[in-house]
Design a protein around this nucleic acid. Structure first.
Lengths: 192, 192
DNA sequence: AGCACTCGTTCACTTAAGTTAAGAAATACG
DNA sequence: CGTATTTCTTAACTTAAGTGAACGAGTGCT
């Protein structure tokens, strides 16, 4: 478990044994069951997550309907907006599978960033990297149709299509479940 | 000009005179005319931008058509994807208005981050902040219709609707210029 | 085993966006 | 100043997504 984390970190900065121990002493690993809700709308939270194994999902409830806007799988990090803004959360986070993740809170980060400047570099790099990734994703989304988005997802994250229920995928693609069904039928039609 | 920059930075970290001079010595301010192209598709670049006054726009050319995916106005920063990925740029950046901006390159950042850890903190904070903002924007985009997106933009960034040509706004909203025209007519209809 | 519930699909119908084309208005430029 | 070009709007038609409803398959629970 810790090896997965340290292997990942080693891609960005190299940690000494002392630094590794500092992280381990924080006791950040947690195992959660499928269906667990990590964060509820309206709640305040200081927790940031990093998925080691499994999948968590971010969703809003708008007019009584669940709108899923993101999935986080292996090696993906999520700092909910409410952590930085210190306001109640606008959305929910739940586990779609049994999941192993790290949970850190802002105090811990401030403390460890103070002690080891290397962590600040790590945070900056991770945050810059996800920002860049996020921007490309957003651009792709804006410039393509639902059908192209689906095909693109099929290409880029085929695992998601297997592990996630259709109606959650649909809102992730910005459409209704019925439209996703239809769209898939349309694609099959074409390729025959 | 430099005051605008330092006022902005002071919201995040407080700089000593020495640090301010270190920044000024880099000679990063630049004034560019409307229409200037800062970055072209296919080009490699190490330059990051921060808009002090004016407006720049990011756009792709897909099937011969311009697709505008972002606008950056006063106090907004843009590090093009190609800078971090070190690959040729997928998109173009041009100035919609006469613009004053700072231009920094990665070497300068590495150098100054090394000398003054405070800059690393600043970069981390700015990057975390835009990531958070970006995520909320993306969520809003996914969960709303073109009409809602337009109304939302009218509410959140009314200035953009004034300063930006309609056809650029249209692709920013993920639709065609004709649809934006129609959609606006529809809204006027309703409110009468 | 039986029941309720969720999930995915299909259908008929409505609504809105894409497409193609044309023309008016604004702007750029020699 | 007049012409070319770009920008915006409108219209008719096509295509695809939204809506509401129904159905069967699968799931969980008792």
């Amino acid at each position: 478990m810790k090896d997965i984390l340290f292997d990942f970190i080693s891609k960005y900065v190299s940690l000494t044994e002392e630094e590794k121990n500092a992280i381990l002493s924080l006791d950040i690993f947690r195992t959660v069951k499928k269906g667990t809700i990590l964060l509820k709308e309206g709640q305040k939270s200081q927790e940031a997550y990093f998925v080691l194994k499994g999948c968590i999902r971010k969703y809003y409830i708008i007019d009584g309907e669940e709108k899923t806007t993101a999935f986080y799988t292996e090696m993906e990090a999520l700092t909910p907006h409410c952590v930085t803004s210190k306001t109640p959360s606008e959305y929910n986070i739940s586990c779609i599978e049994d999941t192993i993740l790290t949970v850190s809170n802002s105090d811990m980060e401030v403390e460890i960033n103070g002690k080891f400047p290397k962590f600040e570099t790590l945070c900056r790099m991770l945050s810059e990297e996800s920002l860049a990734k996020q921007q490309i994703d957003f651009d792709m989304f804006k410039t393509s149709s639902p059908e192209q988005r689906y095909l693109n997802l099929l290409h880029k994250r085929p695992d998601l299509i297997q592990r996630v229920p259709q109606h959650q995928l649909a809102s992730y693609l910005g459409i209704k479940p019925q439209s996703l069904s239809r769209l898939r039928a349309r694609i099959l039609e074409k390729n025959s």
